[in-house]
């Protein structure tokens, strides 16, 4: 009896359906998308097929999704997500590489990895690498108020004071930044829409911070040109692997939308030496790139 049952189970397992997986890439020419895609491809142990939105017409994407009708869709970039959500919202959809994912329409079957790093993760890395820094300034507006509150709360766990300075559309100018910068040892530049819309003010703020020899931390290597000493960003390859692990583990009890698990660090040693910023030389191995 036991043998018969085992044979039946074995037979059934041969025909058990493995979920059909499709990856939709918004644009395979973009490095950040292809980094995540290639890492997913290397890591994911099941079969999957791929389409690239930038190479197809809307009608073709619709037909493809209806024909394939996959169980699981991994979308890279917001365009890919929007197509998957439009044509197959009833399916499990995973996303990555989307700035501000909260604006997306979601369903109970939406999973993903946000583009933005956890604020405490950033502060922990700053404290690890520059243990002397205790007061960090951040510029915010009504759009980023929640983020600043979180930074301030999380900073307390690490003994770092977050000094916030609010900017207002149209009225803020550089004169108000002098007293703000008197009270800080470093400046963290976040993607702040009000400040970024007024490019001249952003440049003036960075120039002033540089003149005052403040350590500037940011999220994009573009800021290296403006004297940033540390760039902390999500590691796109890890994000691809993270989606692969979320799908493979079939663990649906965890966070549905997670923060990126891997970080990429660029250290501008030249600037650090110039402004006399103390850093832990033993931890240099942590950086992905060092600007000498």
């Amino acid at each position: 009896m036991k043998i018969v049952l085992t044979v039946i189970l074995l037979f059934l397992s041969l025909f058990a359906e493995t979920p059909k997986v499709v990856v939709i890439n918004s644009n395979d020419k973009l490095e950040k998308y292809s980094d995540s895609y290639l890492a997913f491809k290397d890591d994911f142990e099941g079969n999957f097929s791929t389409i690239v939105v930038s190479d197809m017409k809307s009608r073709e994407i619709k037909e493809y999704l209806y024909d394939e009708y996959p169980d699981i869709i991994y979308t890279i970039g917001s365009q890919a997500y929007q197509y998957a959500h439009l044509y197959t919202p009833e399916k499990e959809i995973y996303f990555s590489s989307i700035v501000n994912w909260k604006r997306l329409p979601t369903t109970p079957k939406t999973f993903g990895v946000s583009h933005e790093l956890h604020s405490e993760m950033q502060l922990t890395l700053i404290k690890t690498l520059f243990p002397e820094i205790k007061k960090i300034g951040v510029v915010y507006s009504r759009y980023t108020e929640d983020l600043i509150n979180e930074f301030q709360e999380r900073g307390k766990n690490l003994g770092i004071e977050i000094v916030a300075h609010r900017v207002f559309e149209g009225t803020s100018d550089i004169s108000e930044f002098h007293s703000f910068m008197d009270n800080i040892e470093a400046l963290t530049v976040i993607p702040e829409p009000t400040l970024f819309r007024k490019e001249s003010l952003l440049k003036e703020v960075l120039t002033l911070a540089k003149k005052r020899e403040l350590a500037i931390f940011s999220y994009h290597k573009l800021f290296l040109d403006y004297g940033a000493v540390l760039i902390i960003s999500a590691d796109n390859q890890t994000t691809g692997r993270q989606i692969s692990a979320m799908i493979s583990s079939r663990d649906r009890d965890g966070e549905k939308v997670q923060y990126p698990a891997g970080t990429n660090l660029i250290f501008n040693k030249r600037v650090a030496d110039n402004i006399g910023l103390e850093y832990n030389p033993v931890l240099l191995y942590m950086f992905n790139e060092i600007v000498e």
Partner: peptide, 10 residues
């Protein structure tokens, strides 16, 4: 399921 990350602190 193993997820490879760049650093132990990560």
């Amino acid at each position: 399921t193993v997820l490879s990350v760049p650093k132990e602190i990560d």
